[in-house]
Design a protein around this nucleic acid. Structure first.
Lengths: 135, 135
DNA sequence: CAGGATCCGATCGGATACTG
DNA sequence: CAGTATCCGATCGGATCCTG
């Protein structure tokens, strides 16, 4: 009854790999950028400081849950600052940090590539789908 | 019974925004890169052509479902080619395309930023968590 | 070898209701 | 105004079984 087979070894490899991925800086960042809301909020903040409600307006369609959650993440990662002013009712202002702005530049770079190459991607997709259709 | 209130308008805004996002090239690409497997497979292919089983080994921890699904996506987007050789059993080789290699360069750029700035992010996180802990 | 098909638990994210 | 807390449907992805 050999319980350690290819199955076992694959599982071990997975655990190792997961650990590797978890500590890999680039994977961590990719995971962050994976979040669609992170990119949208970061971009919105890049246009200038804004209050919570202002952000909800800039990013139409975001739920309050996701906006809050995303802002907390950005704050934690040092990409944005959260400033509370003791007015009545309280005023909260979010602002992008230099680090956040730097990240925003990277995102802009990705956007640039996308805009330059979307035509090729669309063409490839159309061709691929056409091939599927005719069998 | 005014059924069209702020709630209604927000929904409409959301629909519009979703449509905008769906057609936005950069968002489409970001959505693609969002997928952790896309990045991993693309990177693996960037190291050279490989067969299906070889890819499973290069990317430890990937399930066959996700690998296949991801490869189909890459093929559809024109980032990789799939070549079937009629041997017994059949041999399938995947290779990155120039477009895919170009995208891989962008990913490398992101990785570079990550490696250069991970220290700042980690520091920010530690500081943030410390602040939370002490209340 | 290279997948297609299916089941199913886990996570995500929107809607809703309530608070200082 | 700026959130927090909860419910819950939908999607994701891994495991498993099967095929040319």
């Amino acid at each position: 009854m050999p319980t350690t087979t290819a199955e076992q070894r694959r599982l071990e490899a997975k655990v190792e790999y997961d650990a590797y991925l978890a500590t890999c800086p680039s994977r961590q960042l990719l995971a962050t950028l994976s979040d669609k809301w992170v990119v949208l909020v970061l971009t919105a903040l890049d246009e200038g400081p804004a209050r919570y409600s202002e952000l909800r307006r800039r990013i139409a369609g975001v739920s309050q849950k996701m906006l809050t959650q995303t802002l907390r993440g950005l704050e934690r990662d040092g990409f944005a600052t959260r400033t509370v002013t003791a007015t009545v009712p309280v005023t909260v202002t979010y602002e992008i940090t230099p680090l956040g702005a730097s990240l925003s530049d990277v995102v802009a770079h990705v956007k640039c590539w996308a805009e330059n190459n979307i035509a090729s991607v669309t063409a490839a997709r159309t061709a691929y789908d056409a091939g599927r259709a005719e069998g």
